[in-house]
């Protein structure tokens, strides 16, 4: 699955990282405790989080995560979007919740 599939197939909105949507997504991870994410998320994971401050960009970048997915249409700080574009970390937004995001990935064939 590619990051752009989230936009093209799931209808997620791209908030940042428009130029790097051709990257592969290898897995899906959901957690809001940043140190927990730091020690458990894997290379290439799409990361669902309700945290929207700038630090999520550093984490995604340091761990080589595929992208950040913000659920339930939570507003993302403008600073975060600017930083994400600088660091080429895609951020996508959707109105659905984490459970439904997992369901979509599963239905799209991710196991």
């Amino acid at each position: 699955m590619l990051i752009k599939d989230l936009r093209d197939k799931f209808g997620f909105k791209v908030l940042a990282g428009e130029d790097v949507l051709d990257r592969e997504i290898n897995g899906l991870y959901c957690c809001d405790l940043l140190s927990w994410v730091m020690s458990h998320a894997k290379d290439g994971d799409a990361w669902i989080t309700v945290q929207t401050h700038m630090n999520i960009v550093a984490i995604a970048s340091l761990l080589n995560l595929a992208c950040v997915i913000v659920p339930e249409s939570i507003d993302v700080d403008e600073d975060t979007i600017v930083k994400a574009n600088e660091e080429e970390v895609p951020i996508l937004s959707t109105d659905i919740d984490s459970f439904k995001i997992f369901t979509k990935f599963y239905e799209a064939g991710m196991r």
């Binding site: 140190s35 927990w36 730091m38 020690s39 945290q51």
Partner: peptide, 12 residues
């Protein structure tokens, strides 16, 4: 509330 302070920094 920002997601820090889980008490995992030093162990990590």
């Amino acid at each position: 509330e920002l997601g820090f302070g889980a008490g995992m920094g030093l162990p990590n």
